[in-house]
Amino acid sequence: MPSEPNPRLFNLVLAEDNLPDALLVREAVRLENLPLEVYIAADGERAIDLIVKAENDPNAPCPHVLLLDINLPRIDGFEVLRRVRAIDRFKAVPVVMVTSSDSPSDRKEAAKLGARYFRKPVTYDEFMKIGGLLRQLLEEQGLL
């Protein structure tokens, strides 16, 4: 099914080590018909690499939205977020923490670092709601 040609594509960096979840995010983007290219980093280190490369290499994809799992191998999602926020260019980039955790301390930490919180639901329909959240974020940024 060929997608309609889109004059402008934005970049979504998803830090997620669980491929089934990553695929669900990709499905949500597709279902919502969002102009987003999804880059998947399987651990925190690779996520940081992607972002740092974007800062230094003009040809590298520049992330417009970040989705971070908290419990990531090597470097956890919060640490990734802290390093991103330390870069001037990404101080205001929209970030959503996507996690199975329901811990109040995790929710608090996310709010402190200026990130939305999306608890991974246990049903397909619920999971697809992340598409709506992403649309909202892009609209807030004036990208849609």
Binding site: D21, L24, S100, K120, V122, T123, Y124, F127
Partner: peptide
Amino acid sequence: QEPIRNVAV
């Protein structure tokens, strides 16, 4: 939860 959620979804 993660693997179980995968199973469920």
